[in-house]
Design a protein around this nucleic acid. Sequence first.
RNA 1: GCGAGCGUAGCUCAGUUGGCAGAGCACCAGUUUGUGGCAUUGGGUGUCGCGGGUUCAAGCCCCGUCGCUCGCCCCA
Length: 419
Amino acid sequence: MQIQYPKGMQDILPSQTGMWQALEDICRSASARYGYREIRTPILEKTELFVRGVGEGTDIVGKEMYSFRDQGDEALTLRPELTAGVARAVLQHNLMELSGTQRLWYYGPLFRHERPQKGRYRQFYQYGAELLGSPYPESDVEVIQLAYDILRGLGLSEFSLKINTLGNAASRQAYRDTLVSFLTPLADKLSAESRNRLGKNPLRILDSKDPGDRELLADVPRFGDVLDEESRSYFAAVQDMLTALDISFVVSDKLVRGLDYYSHTVFEFSTDKLGAQDALGGGGRYDGLFEQLGSKKKIPGVGFAAGVERLLLLLQEEHLAIGKEQGPDFYLVGLDDESRAIVIKLARDLRLAGKSVLTDLQRRSLKAQMKEADKAQALTVVIIGEAERVAGIVRVRNMATGEQVEYSIDTAAVQLGQL
RNA sequence: GCGAGCGUAGCUCAGUUGGCAGAGCACCAGUUUGUGGCAUUGGGUGUCGCGGGUUCAAGCCCCGUCGCUCGCCCCA
């Protein structure tokens, strides 16, 4: 059997890279408009970073990481998400000493060992942004707005924004306790999965799709009931600003998000066009992350990440094309050895003048080369054969109109360079 | 980790009760002695995923195996 890529990986072929690059460009320029700067961190990090940063109780750390020990017996992991690595880099280089606010964006591949399916890969790409240093709701809104701009910038419309609050640390702990004492007596009725979560990550039980669980959860205490005043007004401020910016959203108290480090605002952009994997991107505030990573200072942060493959899938679903391929400026046809020598020089001159030039390398017939030029969508074809050499000219054909003119062979490079 | 479906040409797929491996698109060459698209003629480019079994005969039936896809779970 032919060697194939590992399960859940994929090749991005030349016919698709235009689309990928266009998406990257849109992310880049949106980031720049908001004053975010790119950060690149290693694809490989110490395993401990994710265990501490993402949380041991999470599925990501519990069962999805590509972890191994290298030749020096160091425990390493292919990054399953990017926020932890960015936070690590910020601490390692004391970036917060440079400025009270850091606006960062990133783009790159992540790895999670899950069963692949539509919109879910073991190596997948995320664009994301992190806003560090501000504890105020306007920063949550800035990040949501950036994400929203990118989705709209791509031309997407078939998505919705869900938001929720997890409250401040005190509220979250209080709710966690309330939830655990409510659910513990019911433990033997819960699904195995949820029972397991009761000790490790009880908030995620709210998310359960198990019908039995859903019934038990019908009269679970509401998060809103235990939110303190600070948490309440914080969330209200976020909603007010989103409304003022005409960004529509729905509040969903089932939105909990998988990672340990979130607090206050969490949000998710989702679509109903992609089947089971409906989350396009999401994020939230994570005021506790840096302390979990050993920072002595409190560094508040808010961030989001979007799944590139899912955005591209949705673009196709909505029949939106980005990054269309463009043909070369010129296709140079040479019909015999001497003509081909002229073609090689002319191609060089045109390329030096900044033109894109394609030539035939199969020594094929005029007709075959014309077909090739047409397929490549060349704007102009230049033909040189024995007859042209004898006459001291080249034939220049406009492929859109079919018009054909003659240039002197000596001035052709200059004249063509001006087209 | 669990469940279901599918593997036949470069792509999308058809292939009857087991009887010479097919279509469309793509590709190549010609019709046009040196001119693309349109039209037309010709060309099959194949380890029927792989290994075994049944049979005179297997793409088709049986067993195993690998791969892919979709769903559960979880997430982007």
